[in-house]
Computed example of a mutant assay.
Amino acid sequence: MEKYSQFRDKGRHRNRTLPPRPFAPANVLWTPIHALLFALRLLPVLSLSLSYFLLLEILPIPTIIKKCVLWLLLAVPGVWWVDLQVDGVKRGRLSDKQAAGSLPKEGDIVASSFTSPLDPLYLAGIFCPVFVRTWPGEKGVQVITLWGAICMAFSQPQLESPKGVELVQLKELSKKYPDSIICVFPESTTTNGRGILPLSPALLTAGSKTKIYPVNLRYTPGDITTPVPGGAFNWVWKLLSKPTHQMRVRIARPIYNSPSIDTPSTTKSEKASGVDMGYETNIWDSPHLRNGVHVGEEKGDMGQQVLDRVGEDLARLGRVKRVGLGVREKTEFVKIWKSRRR
């Protein structure tokens, strides 16, 4: 893959936009089994999808019914939620009253990683949030539906919002939807799950007292991620033909968009042990350091510090690195990738 070396992150030598290796059965004898699984699952998934997006989503029915349909839509292709970890909460203690403040609730914001169309589907099944779309150079966001969030995983990355799109700030949305969680994909595009892209400044429009929860979702195996636009049919084949897909969810402690309200994302013991820095990371990889200088603190850029903290938490939860390549570089990569594929 040396022909795509210009899209590798400097110092990391890894490409965060390459699609995952295509899934192939270990033995040719398994091919009929995968074809049978695809055929058996296709009709139920289509029926559930049409029923929900054309009828149930717009009807004033109880939220629990919508969530049950979404969970069934995940269960039919064999997507299993195998692990959930929340910062500051021990395993098996999520039902305790003390853990109530560690999970997002009405009025909060979820800043989620974005690797697959399953991400918004899972988040809708858990939180039933209001989804918004972001752009790397815009502070405003666009309210979209769950179907719009799923389609965004297959769409071309955009540097700017299209003309005529109504943009609002997160603070205004929190007032408009006080009884709902707002879900933001701050990377503005999908990745292959191997890095966290620079975040959109839209997060900086949240209220100073609004909690921002970084959430990271990972899949095993990772062949159902969609870092390159298009390929919807191939993705459906991978989703329905494999027996199971494992999903792991990590939720960090809340962050506030205010220097006066500081809730540390990690404990002192975690920082001392190096957990806060992420997986296989040293101090010189920190986004706060450039040539050994704390740029955020010297410049007093509190907004950038908030984005850095959210990015650090997303990277730590996913055990990946933060990278400097953004939507612009991905757009250029997609053009070269598709031209050479043809």
Rank of each mutant, 00 (worst) to 15 (best):
V143P: 07
V132N: 00
V141Q: 04
F131R: 02
S155I: 08
L170P: 06
P157I: 04
K163D: 15
K171A: 12
E172N: 11
C183A: 08
K175E: 13
Q142M: 11
D179S: 12
P129Q: 01
I126M: 01
I181R: 00
R93L: 13
S112A: 13
V141Y: 04
A149C: 09
V130E: 00
D96M: 11
S116M: 03
V130K: 00
R91F: 12
A153L: 11
R93A: 15
G148I: 07
T115F: 02
V143M: 03
L103Y: 06
W135E: 02
G88M: 08
P136K: 02
D87P: 04
T145P: 10
Q98D: 15
A99K: 12
A124N: 02
G101E: 09
Q169T: 15
R93V: 08
S174V: 05
A124G: 05
L170W: 06
S174P: 07
E166S: 12
F114E: 05
F127E: 00
F114G: 01
E166D: 09
D87Y: 03
P178I: 04
G148Q: 11
G164W: 14
Q142S: 12
G140S: 06
G148R: 13
A149G: 12
K163T: 12
L121D: 02
M152N: 14
S116T: 07
T145Y: 11
I144D: 10
K176N: 06
Q169A: 10
G164V: 12
D179P: 04
F114A: 07
V168N: 05
A99P: 07
I181Q: 00
L173G: 04
Q158V: 03
P136N: 02
I126P: 00
V89Y: 07
S155L: 10
I109R: 01
R133G: 03
E138A: 05
P136M: 04
P162Q: 13
Q158R: 13
L167C: 07
S95T: 15
L94N: 08
Q142T: 08
L146I: 14
E106P: 03
E172K: 13
P136Q: 01
L118I: 14
P178S: 09
S102E: 11
S116P: 08
P120Y: 04
F154W: 12
K175S: 13
D96N: 15
A149V: 07
K97E: 15
G101I: 06
V143K: 09
F127P: 00
P129M: 00
A99E: 10
K97W: 13
L123S: 01
R93S: 14
V141R: 03
V130S: 00
L123V: 05
G125V: 03
E138H: 05
L159P: 06
F114T: 05
G164Q: 10
F154D: 09
K90H: 13
S102L: 08
S155A: 15
D96W: 13
G101S: 13
T134E: 01
I181F: 00
K176P: 07
C151M: 13
G92S: 14
I181M: 01
G137E: 09
Q169M: 11
D96V: 08
S155P: 06
A124P: 01
W135H: 06
P178H: 04
S174K: 10
G164P: 14
K175R: 15
K163W: 10
G140W: 08
I182N: 01
